[in-house]
Design a protein around this nucleic acid. Sequence first.
DNA 1: CCGCTGCATGTATGG
DNA 2: CATACATGCAGCGGT
Length: 908
Amino acid sequence: MDPSACMNAYCGTSSSIEWYKGWALRSGRFANLCHKCGSAYEQSLFCDVFHSKESGWRECTLCGKRLHCGCIASRSLLDFLDSGGVKCKNCAKNLEAHPIASDEKPDGPATSKISELKSTPSDNQLERNNVDKAKLMQLENNKECNGLRNLLQPQNNETVGLLQKMKQDDVPASVGGIGGTSLSIFNQISNVPSEGSKAELYKANLGINDIYESLPHTNLSMSLGAPSGYASPFPGVIVDEHTRTSSLFLQGARSRHLLPKPPKLALATGLEENATMTSQARVARPPAEGRGRNQLLPRYWPRITDQELQQISGDSNSTIVPLFEKMLSASDAGRIGRLVLPKACAEAYFPPISQPEGLPLRIQDVKGKEWVFQFRFWPNNNSRMYVLEGVTPCIQSMQLQAGDTVTFSRMDPEGKLIMGFRKASNSNAMQDTHVSAIHNGAHSSETFFSGVIENLPVISGYSGLLQSLKGGMDPHLSALSKHLSTASGDLSWHKSEKHEGRTREGLLLQSLVVPERKRTRNIGSKSKRLLIDSQDALELKLTWEEAQDLLRPPPAAKPSTVMIEDLEFEEYEEPPVFGKRSIFIVRSTGEQEQWAQCDSCSKWRRLPVDILLPSKWMCTDNVWDQNRCSCSAPDELTPRELESFLRLSKEFKKRRMVTNHRPIQEHESSGLDALANAAILGDSVTDPGTASVATTTKHPRHRPGCSCIVCIQPPSGKGKHKPSCTCNVCMTVKRRFKTLMINKKKRQSEREAEIACRNQLTWGPRDEAEVDSTSRHVSSHLDPSDNETRSANESESKSQIKLAETGKGKLDLNCHPGREVDLPAGPNQLSMMSLLQVANLPLESYLKKTGLTSLISEQQTSSASPVQPQATEENEEQLNEDQCVVSVVQERESGGEERPDQSQDDPQ
DNA sequence: CCGCTGCATGTATGG
DNA sequence: CATACATGCAGCGGT
């Protein structure tokens, strides 16, 4: 499916800048919005391109225009500069129209821009730079920044100016690569004639999409040797690969050093520190050019840090040239002992082979041990599939498993192949281990820093720092681990211990306590087949949902209202911001509480239920309780209570995982099954709360049960039933669906008035439990004897709630323009701001005012009911001791899990 | 019967 | 749609 097309099968809007216009808020959820059909794609919250919680907003490096990456819709919105940063379509177009302008005018745009920036350092660009302040705060701790100023000192004005210009451009993609990056820039600059450098560099900054194509023309394969008159802060010299021809592997190899720009403020922050700091940033380096013309996917770019390079190289005169890396698949790491090599890499960096038998290849590991693998290929279609055979002993010796990464480098001038590795689960420095591990290692925390996204053509931070490091020999890395995993969030190559010790509770707590912790979505993972612990995978799936929970409207942003298909959306030009996660509880008295944890002292503080917390919140911000507005104030919750709450939250999370997991299995079914799901799941199918979680693989943004024209297609080649099929199964499914819809309509009409009222409540404190747009909701009931009445009312109240949501006019990603069933009666005029105002009213007064006091009991019962037996039993037992029964409200996330027995919907 | 080998096939992804 | 690649699996040989 065209990733840039609207996923609504009825819409047909395909890639265009218009597609993705802004952030839409509806039903308490943020999403990006197709302006044609109103489909909202919540998954776009996390930016595939920038892989950032900052939602993919960037500025064109050249003109400053704000861009959205168009995670799903349209990557064509922007191009990536090979020098880092992005450019908008306009700039790209303009530059393509005048590709040689800068060549003709060495003092043209580049120079003038440079001087301009030099002279007015507080111009707009700098102002714009503030946008990414948050990101840069991370940088402040990153000593990678440090070397640049010193590097600049001896430079001529041109170079400095250029670098300044570069630094001022917003280049988040190279955030992590500052050290090496800046050095490489410097070296390159200093190695070319100054006149040419401007032109070439500027040109390199322009619309060059294909770095491999463009670089030969831009003559950037210049020597990287240390410039005369420049005392490199690094102990080695830079490799000039042009001079390396000694190895077979070097055949055709040329350095194609790119010119990533250092991020803005790279020069402005922390520059005083010593310049000899070697880069520890894990930056994907476009590898040295190999024979093959095929460009290497960024996925395979070596992400070796300079420090690792240094460690490999030791003190020898040899230079380590990172070639490529590959994340081990299950079969790679399996017992078969065959490591599938990326074709392009194999052809580029390994000796050419013409016979399938290939030839033995000596590869030295980082400990200095030499292995001999059979490098060979199989015919595959009309192509070849390259494998390294006999890798099992090596893999085992490195204790590698699926998801870990092996790196291939070359030691020059010997041409010796070096094999390193990186454990997927070692990004402990960022406490993101569980995430990175279950991400197949594709997006661990360092990715966030570096901004380099695998699978995506983000050209970033090629340090060009192919240092040869002088001194002692023996490229052992055995001691490496203790040098790595430092504060910069780097990965260790060697640490094999996993962080299984981190308990689920810990994970939960972490997620509760540090919601702003960098988390990633399982995107960009090439291998879906990697062995991932299912629980972890489910947990991973939730990160989006969790993130959605934390979204807040951008501060000071005024939403504009757009109407699409009679649905009203609030549209924000700014992406939402992340707030702090909190826990909601409901006492048996009906009293609601919100609890949040101080970021400083970790104590839990009780808050009004209607407060939206910023991502950072501390006791001192607790203006609602003067007795507990400082970290020194004692904890209000007993450890027992806290444990109960967290426990229940954990249970809730688990159940939600299970709930969400089920449809994933179901989606393997045929389109008719999907229809059946629609019938069985009924209202909840269209519950927007389930939309973002339970997806199908057919097209991941559709929910199980989705009956759109796409979803009801059988899997290719496996069609079971035609839409016109009249077999018993099909007829039953259709009948069920019909009955369901009739019932739904009936209920809807019966409760129309009530729905209207309830809609007003949607953003009220109580109804948050249904919307769950902010937090885990845990309601506590002091009287467990409520259970009977609860169960008696459960079914009805649930259906009411769901109906209420139906009536709210939910987002249906696949709304048929002419479809009646799910369309709401009309738009609701609930703006975020008005809702917040409403939320600020005391609950009771609001209910009285709106005549909805009767809803309290109903909601309580409904909110307490859907606890699964196994969880409830244990919990209640535990909690009864505490005189507090806590149950989790999960109306919204429950999907079809807790619907009444399907036979209720089954006319048979 | 088991494990290895080579190929075929399904799936994900990029153009 | 073409391609890359992860993995399944048939066939074969060794035990």
